[in-house]
Design a protein around this nucleic acid. Structure first.
Lengths: 234, 234
DNA sequence: TGACCGCAAGTGGTCTGAGGACTTACGCTG
DNA sequence: CAGCGTAAGTCCTCAGACCACTTGCGGTCA
């Protein structure tokens, strides 16, 4: 087995076996090298791999630690790779988002959180008042994120958030062309979701969320012929 | 900015900008070091990070390449980290699986693939005939995977697969205790899903899949008090 | 002519050693 | 007792060398 793979397996095993739980500190690098039988370079490359996946964290001057192993945090690590996925793949991801967010929105409607309606309404008021592309994106994200959080499953919130972040790179809301029509359709979709939540109607909420995201899918699908439709600048 | 972060950003940018598309080859490491202004160690650690996320691939003796950037492949990379998530987080993930697989199962029922029913039936025949824990796990995975694939969204298949792989580490089907009762309940659940698909009834399929996975969630939830319920042995 | 073999150039993989940068905690000082 | 400085501990970065693998070219043999 290659040195880096050996180190990777060793580090992973230390966590999997329960020897080190969430937040626990690893031995210093030289000691780990000795224990795993690899050089420091190989150990460090293995550690980088696990750090990229959100499994461990290296703190300069302090040490290397097992992360919290929280699914929402781990899923957030997807963001870097998901943002590089081409449009065709983004459409597959949007179906995932549609299904999950539809579910979360129904759950939020069923929860009957008294504050939720007013908080969402505030966000929509601000959203409808602006025409700035990046502010639209931020408020849209805040709206959907608030609903998903109310849905009660942080993993779903994280997953939908990552996917939404990718879709946002395709700037649908750039001024020009069909900006007004698109904006109005989007705003109506948000109001429909809010109404369903205010009515404590999970089925309606699910349908409204599903329809809203399906609309986004249609807009993106229209871009499909383009080979490079606004690659993620970041 | 730290050296490794600089290298990471640089490599990522080469892909994000469209300079290098899926499958493209990076310049040799020494050239990249010069271009990015970092040492080879730092460059390699950055490359390891991206490789862990499924964004690039290094082939010994050949070169470093941009991956296919296929969402299903990228999601598979998370298997390593997901398998380390503690039970509490697995329950959140199972809700994701329940929602997604319920959706995919409905889609499979709607698709009317003529071969699907017989293939699934074969798998269930074999599944019902065995009592070997690891074979049960394999056949169960094959059953659900076949359905998800028929659902038509490879990303959904990959995502549910990763989550199922995690749940499998909690060996529900170990002989002893309630083995027979659990096995029978599970088998009945599979047959209900198959029946709904055979009837081309998406709503029934969705419900059956949802109920089947919800049952798994209940079994796992029963383990919750345990601090370390059979950690992933690998 | 064609297929096969071997060699050499190109490239990533690994190791070693050294010095720098940051965090942390101890002990000293006021 | 509070504040500060210092030293130990730890990760970060760099440099250079050598090894292992892939690839393609060119020669050789059937």
């Amino acid at each position: 087995m290659a040195a880096t793979d050996k180190a990777l397996a060793g580090l992973r095993q230390m966590i999997a076996s329960g020897e080190l739980g969430p937040g626990a500190k690893f031995p210093p690098e030289p000691e780990l090298c000795d224990h795993l039988g690899v050089s420091r370079s190989s150990l460090r490359e293995a550690a980088r791999s696990l750090a990229a996946l959100g499994v461990i964290e290296s703190r300069h001057g302090s040490g290397t630690y097992v992360s919290a192993l929280d699914p929402a945090e781990i899923i957030s690590r997807f963001s870097l790779s998901v943002q590089l996925i081409p449009l065709e793949g983004v459409l597959q991801l949007l179906e995932v988002r549609r299904v999950l967010e539809s579910h979360a929105t129904a759950a939020a409607a069923a929860r009957q959180d008294p504050d939720l309606e007013s908080r969402l309404s505030d966000i929509l008021d601000r959203l409808e008042a602006t025409e700035d592309a990046s502010e639209i994106q931020n408020l849209d994200a805040e709206f959907h994120d608030t609903i998903c959080t109310a849905g009660g499953n942080p993993t779903v919130t994280a997953l939908t958030g990552v996917i939404r972040g990718r879709g946002g790179h395709y700037r649908i809301f750039e001024p020009g062309a069909d900006f007004d029509a698109i904006k109005q359709t989007s705003d109506r979709g948000h109001r429909a979701i809010l109404a369903a939540i205010a009515n404590r109607d999970p089925a309606a909420a699910s349908t409204a969320a599903s329809a809203h995201i399906a609309q986004t899918e249609l807009w993106l699908r229209a871009l499909r012929p383009e080979p490079q439709p606004t690659p993620p600048a970041d």
